[in-house]
């Protein structure tokens, strides 16, 4: 089990006149084995935070430590075994000309793991896809099927920390239930640590212990999950977002 500590993280993105300070100065801590939620305004920088932690973006300032070790001190190989990410846009994260087999096999080869066929089949089974899908290409899959391949790829290396960017928003709620049950179960059995981005506060309530509310690149408040029901948020934006979500959830 590993913790995550993000300290004074900042990054500017864009080119020329269009450069913008997307994350001015951000800090938060995730305990080992915790599921930590990131919620907030669309465009506020949630995916950017995850892309910094996964080193998909490298030119940030500040410090990110995994289990007490600074991320930049880990070798590439160790980092991949430690941190995996499920992307918000499954289409973009899968190579269009790579079959599902190639997608799942690649990390197994790089990390020299044995029993490859068995591991691939198990990973597909866990996300509820038939083994025959190993020979499909991304364009032959529905949106939700692509997302499940992306989840299978992240799980196959059994990482300590999973960064989940809207992992279930492209799935129908019955498949979502299966994936959330799987993720909860993995956390219990293997002690995974999660950072979960979601716009669905019911999912956040189900999965997370604590969550941070983001607006325009800043964390405006970190709250316990109980804040969703006992109205204890204090920042105006956090209050607005939570009450709108509760109304949205109850209006039925």
């Amino acid at each position: 089990m590993k913790s995550v500590a993000v300290t004074n993280l900042s990054i500017a993105l864009g080119m020329g006149a269009n450069v913008a300070n997307i994350l001015p100065d951000l800090s938060f801590e995730v305990e080992k084995g915790e599921c930590f939620g990131l919620i907030g305004e669309s465009g506020s920088g949630k995916s950017t935070v995850l892309r910094c932690i996964s080193l998909l973006l490298q030119h940030w300032r500040g410090d990110i430590a995994i289990g007490g070790t600074s991320l930049r001190d880990l070798s590439v190989i160790d980092r991949c075994r430690t941190v995996q990410m499920v992307f918000q846009d499954p289409y973009g994260s899968l190579h269009p000309r790579h079959s599902v087999r190639t997608v799942l096999q690649e990390p197994l080869k790089i990390h020299k793991l044995d029993r490859r066929q068995e591991r691939m089949e198990q990973a597909l089974e866990e996300v509820g896809l038939p083994i025959s899908f190993l020979d499909r290409f991304p364009h032959q899959l529905s949106g939700g099927q692509r997302q499940r391949v992306a989840i299978a790829r992240a799980l196959i290396l059994e990482p300590d920390i999973l960064l989940l960017d809207e992992p279930t928003s492209a799935l129908d709620v019955s498949v979502q239930a299966e994936i959330l049950n799987l993720l909860s179960d993995l956390r219990r059995r293997r002690g995974f640590t999660y950072i979960l981005v979601s716009h669905d506060l019911a999912v956040v309530d189900y999965m997370c212990d604590r969550f941070a509310v983001m607006q325009a690149g800043d964390i405006v408040e970190v709250l316990d999950r109980s804040a969703l029901v006992n109205d204890s948020a204090t920042h105006p934006y956090a209050r607005e977002l939570i009450s709108a979500s509760v109304a949205y959830d109850r209006a039925s």
Partner: peptide, 14 residues
């Protein structure tokens, strides 16, 4: 199968 805010944390119905 739909989770709810303030709902139970028992495994979701599948």
């Amino acid at each position: 199968a739909q989770p709810r805010i303030g709902g139970s944390r028992a495994p979701l119905s599948v």
